[in-house]
Amino acid sequence: MLAYVGRRLLSLAVTLAIASAIVFTVMEILPGDPAEVMLGTNARPDTLAALRAQYGLDRPAPERYLAWAGGLLQGDMGLSYTYSVPVTQLVAERMWVSLPLALIALTLTTLIAIPVGALAAAKRNSATDVGVMTATQVGIAVPNFWFAMLLVLVFAITLRWLPAGGFPGWKAGAWPALKALVLPAVALALPQASILARVMRSSLLDTLGEDYVRTARAKGLTRAQTVRRHALRNALIPVLTIMGLQFSFLLAGTIIIENVFFLPGLGRLVFQAITQRDLIVVKSVVMLLVASVVVVNFLVEVGYAAVDPRLRRRV
């Protein structure tokens, strides 16, 4: 098991290194000079040069990559062109909105999807099952940002139960902050939960057709006992895989949803940075998002091995 995790960690490191190189290269070939953006097009050449030197923009690309990547490793993302503050500090502030939002959404997704999917599978072809399948079919088709707008219309504008947007900050207390995150999290979670519930249902149905389920029944286990003791854990393996893949959608969703609710998270940060051509911020946030997808998938794979003894010995 340790050797397995070790090998995976190594491939994780390689993946991250390649990812950072790609992000750097793509951002590098982009047209547009940040120095010009900051100072305006009619700035004097020597001022431009001085600014480039200040931000290290005059050095060759490989050197700048190494400096950037080395900085990332030490938690130093460089200085923001527009704010002139360390990017790390900017990101850290914004993270406290995006991360809780993603986590709450993920928790909600799981808590809804797994029981609902399992219930539909256990009561296959019943009215419950048909209801779940219809609801999830619609749920998959709903864009999360539109769903968010509908939630605002109903719960914020009409009923006035929850805020329509903005974020009071965690200093204002946990409850007001959480209240601000409820609607965004629900908007993110429901479409994802629809997908996951369907995966859960079909995975459990597949598992219930396995030979060992029949063996368990022949031992004298009731249907319910068989599902609980033998089928569920096996059925969760593919669900886990899909959850790992969903994380990248969830992340993208978070960035978009933050725009609906005017939440000061990473999503807002990256869009502001794009319009202000604050490339160092864009680069760092993109890298952070990619890294988190990679890390989550790494965790899923390790979790996979923890659940499934067959994988522990695999290369």
């Binding site: 396995e210 030979d211 060992y212 029949r214 063996t215 368990a216 029944r217 022949a218 031992k219 004298g220 286990l221 009731t222 033998h230 854990r233 096996n234 659940v307 499934d308 003894p309 067959r310």
Partner: peptide, 25 residues
């Protein structure tokens, strides 16, 4: 329920395919 009490105690069964007859986990 009565059948469940019977299976595995009074009648039991061995299947053809041993590779898939056991819970892998």
């Amino acid at each position: 329920r009565a059948m469940c009490a019977l299976r595995g105690r009074d009648i039991s069964m061995v299947f053809q395919e041993p590779m898939t007859a056991l819970n892998p986990l």
